[in-house]
Design a protein around this nucleic acid. Structure first.
Lengths: 326, 326
DNA sequence: CTAGGTGCAAATAATTTGCAGAGGC
DNA sequence: GCCTCTGCAAATTATTTGCACCTAG
């Protein structure tokens, strides 16, 4: 799947003042075809198989070039030499490193990333890159069982997890709007909530379809371990909102306000995290979802203003009462 | 402060089947006198100053020995060579690494550690050690101002932060018990809460005294940046408990139950984290505090059982009502 | 034609090792 | 006396570089 066909437009990436070279192209192609973390030496061996006239120095020079061009990332597992992984459509991530079999496993945790950012900020430190490595023994080495063979790229797993988060949020949102529509008294407000519930339902269908389509790319995709760890996911917002609707006697304006809070949080959340990821389907999913939430947010705000105005006119006396109780 | 006088009993640490050697002793002593992260070469230079007949190979061999013996930790800042830091009374920690001046700053985040543990568990990975490194530009390099010179060891900062957390928890606890004593009807329960409030007040005094004493060791200790990042600190528990007392009409049994929940959470929290830190004053503070909370917990549980029994006797009919409403 | 790109071999840099002699128990 | 420690120099490993030649634009 993610073979040479997925190679980005190298010409675009070429730093200014560099020439095309068939040898470099070959090295880059061989490199991008590999999965996992190659040492310079691994790559030399692979290259020699295709063309033994390419020297070690050229491979080193090309590797350096790829890192500068952003095609590759240099990673250090503390082995006394560097390894390289390609970064094209391969989200930045952290590593679990097995000291027994030397395999390494990738994961991403937005929760950890957020904490790392906080620490950096508290120390007045401008963070450019962070490394999180967990050393220990992997499940395969502990239990003797072999791990589910590779086959799913991190890109795919990331998309899967992004979709799962979006779907969970959508489900909470649907529940929230369904409940809101039920308790709203104003017929116009009721209709809006109904509409939003319908939209969430529709969008949920779209997302689920997309999820199914993703699963087709790898029959075992669903059972593979989590790649993106993300506790702070926005679905909790809507869940809390729905809870709030259930508890107190919430009036129409209040319901709209809660909805606005949820959508705003959700929008911010998906936008912020979407932006921070590298180009990938997962990023795409987050950003599309952010846009969706933004539209809902606008709709709710418009409605809120309208309802406020309408309530004010027929009963201007209410204003004082409301102001006093606020 | 943390000079050769602080050196642990090296004889205890000597692996079986090794001999004492004056050269090794010298190397270890010089190493332990240093602050910060030394490269092998730095140490060779330092050693040569004291005795130029000690060879580079011996320094390397001793460094390896120290790592095995647990006196030193080998750290990799991706420079293509390793650095070493001593681990004696120096808590495990993470690093902020400035790419401009190559200085490195230490911090510890129990929040990050907890997330790392979760990820490892979710992947069936047995974590032995984890590395968190934030690369970027430090405040000094960005602003041009020099950083507050070193002088406080991580050990000291850790103790400071552990005390701050304990004090904050104690304050919340005090507020909780004061409020609980006020709203409790049963005179015996009232007295217990009063007693606990008094104890918290007293303990708070002790902790604050200890904190002041700690500050004496370094006049600028208070203004130094946070070392231990710890959002999940237990003081939130008591704060939430106090909130709960404020809101609903809480009866005596319920107040005791809330107290039990707070103390249990607090106890677990300090015990769990205290255990996970290396030997240090910070660890000490956490464990002592855990023990304190355990005693309060027992007291509350005893009282809860008594009150339950007493309430049952005069009005046995209540049991059914309580059971039905549960 | 000229600035990069490449091969080869030599240089670096950090660290390890073989071996013979020194020293602790 | 035996076994470990140590110094020295050579070896190893990963990576970089100088230089002469090659090739794309």
């Amino acid at each position: 799947m993610a073979t040479a066909s997925a190679i980005p437009d190298l010409d675009r990436l070429r730093p200014a003042g560099t020439k095309r070279s068939s040898k470099r192209d070959l090295i880059v192609n061989v490199f991008l075809r590999q999965e996992g973390h190659l040492s310079a030496d691994d790559l030399v061996a692979l290259i020699k198989r295709e063309d033994h006239r390419i020297s070690r120095a050229t491979v080193y020079r090309t590797l350096q070039w790829m890192v500068e061009a952003g095609i590759a990332r240099k990673v250090d597992f503390g082995e006394g030499r560097f390894r390289f992984e390609h970064s094209y459509r391969h989200p930045r991530h952290f590593h679990l490193i097995c000291k027994t079999c030397n395999r390494s496993y990738e994961f991403l945790s937005s929760d950890i990333e957020a904490l790392v950012e906080e620490v950096a900020a508290a120390r007045g430190f401008q963070a450019r890159q962070s490394v999180v490595q967990i050393y220990g023994t992997c499940e395969a080495c502990r239990t003797g069982r072999e791990p589910a063979e590779e086959g799913a790229t991190s890109e795919l797993l990331f998309a899967r997890d992004a979709l799962r988060i979006a779907i969970a949020t959508e489900r909470s949102g649907l529940e929230f709007y369904t409940r809101a529509a039920r308790i709203t008294k104003d017929p116009r407000g009721k209709r809006i909530f109904h509409e939003l519930a319908e939209e969430e339902k529709h969008h949920l269908g779209t997302l689920e379809g997309r999820y199914r389509k993703l699963l087709e790319q790898d029959p075992q995709l669903e059972s593979r371990p989590t790649f993106l760890f993300f506790k702070g996911a926005a679905n909790g917002l809507f869940a809390a909102g729905a809870d709030q609707l259930r508890r107190d006697g919430v009036d129409d304006l209040e319901a709209l306000r809660i909805g606005i809070r949820c959508e705003r949080g959700s929008h911010r959340f998906f936008k912020r995290y979407g932006e921070r990821f590298e180009d990938s389907e997962g990023k795409q999913i987050f950003l599309e979802f952010a846009e969706e939430e933004r539209q809902h947010l606008e709709m709710l705000i418009r409605e809120y203003r309208l309802l406020q105005k309408r309530q004010r006119k027929p009963a201007p006396a209410r204003r004082r009462a409301a102001a006093r109780s606020a």
